[in-house]
């Protein structure tokens, strides 16, 4: 009986940790409305040059050469979907990846790490709050693109797209956990986050199909979760394919998610122990 009560209380405490972390991060976000508006709107400005570039080079809104390698001649929806999904990469790397570093800046990291709770739930709370904010931003961008760029979104594709996005988020947060772990030990993980952003930007099919890259770069691109998520979402939204036809992409995402999350938690716990022992938690 006593054991059951303790288990329930432990479960409730963990739930409170996750919930508090979500509320705290959302409060931070809403405390700066300009920052909120910035992330909801400005990523659109970053892909407008690609749309104008495509129009200038092709002389229209469709390209047959593009269709041969991408499966669709319409490069504008291709670029927009790439940019919207890529915003999850940016928020996970800079948001979640640096969340631990931010706690150090605020002077709250020592308290968090010395609290008698499972740190995994703090990280889950951080990941969930980042997912909520990223999804709000992505949804706003997509809504603007539907209004101004004529992206078609039918009810039937929403559920499979959300499913793929969840799989993408899991993989990205696994990677972000690895970054958070490294920032515990090596502090300035900012450069690593930038480097990972470069890798995603060049080797994932964010703006161009994977087939336009050399073979070695395609192989590198195939270990990134964003690659499979982009292929799947574009296949569903632009080529009207069913989720069942994309089982290989879904399987690849599941494998990457599993590996990244396992590695992320393992590394974080290991680094936490190391930093506690070495006494470098509060070092900058």
């Amino acid at each position: 009986m006593k054991e059951r009560i303790m288990q329930q209380s432990s479960l409730r405490s963990n739930y409170i940790i996750v919930w508090s972390e979500i509320v705290k991060n959302l409060k931070f976000l809403l405390a700066y409305p300009v920052v909120f508006i910035f992330w909801a709107i400005f990523p659109i400005f970053w892909f407008i040059p690609f749309i104008l570039q495509g129009e200038a080079f092709v002389g229209g809104l469709q390209s047959q050469s593009f269709a041969e390698i991408a499966g669709t001649a319409e490069f504008i929806p291709f670029v927009i979907l790439g940019a919207v999904l890529n915003s999850y990469v940016l928020t996970s790397l800079y948001g979640m990846g640096e969340s631990i570093r931010r706690e150090a800046y605020r002077g709250t990291l020592d308290y968090i790490l010395s609290s008698p709770c499972n740190k995994a739930f703090i990280l889950i709370g951080k990941a969930l709050s980042e997912s909520i904010s990223s999804s709000i931003f992505a949804f706003t961008q997509l809504a603007i693109c539907i209004l101004f760029f004529g992206i078609a979104l039918t009810i039937g594709v929403i559920i499979p797209v959300i499913f793929i996005v969840i799989l993408l988020i899991l993989g990205l947060y696994g990677m972000a956990l690895i970054l958070a772990a490294l920032s515990l030990r090596y502090k300035q993980a900012h450069d690593l986050a930038h480097t990972m952003e470069y890798v995603f930007s060049v080797f994932s099919p964010v703006r161009y199909p994977l087939a336009s890259l050399p073979l070695w770069a395609q192989i590198l691109g195939k270990i990134l979760p964003l690659t499979y998520a982009l292929i799947a979402v574009r296949s569903i939204m632009l080529l009207n394919q069913n989720l069942s036809a994309l089982y290989l992409e879904v399987l690849a995402l599941l494998v990457i998610d599993g590996v990244a999350i396992f590695l992320g938690f393992y590394l974080f716990n290991w680094m936490e122990e190391k930093t506690k022992k070495s006494g470098t938690i509060s070092n900058f």
Binding site: P49, F50, Q53, G54, F57, V58, S63, Q64, S65, F66, E68, I69, A70, F75, V79, S201, V202, V206, R207, Y208, P209, S212, L213
Partner: peptide, 13 residues
Amino acid sequence: LPFIIYGLAVIGG
């Protein structure tokens, strides 16, 4: 790089 690769992809050369 993305600007160049994208440019090459949309015109096929």
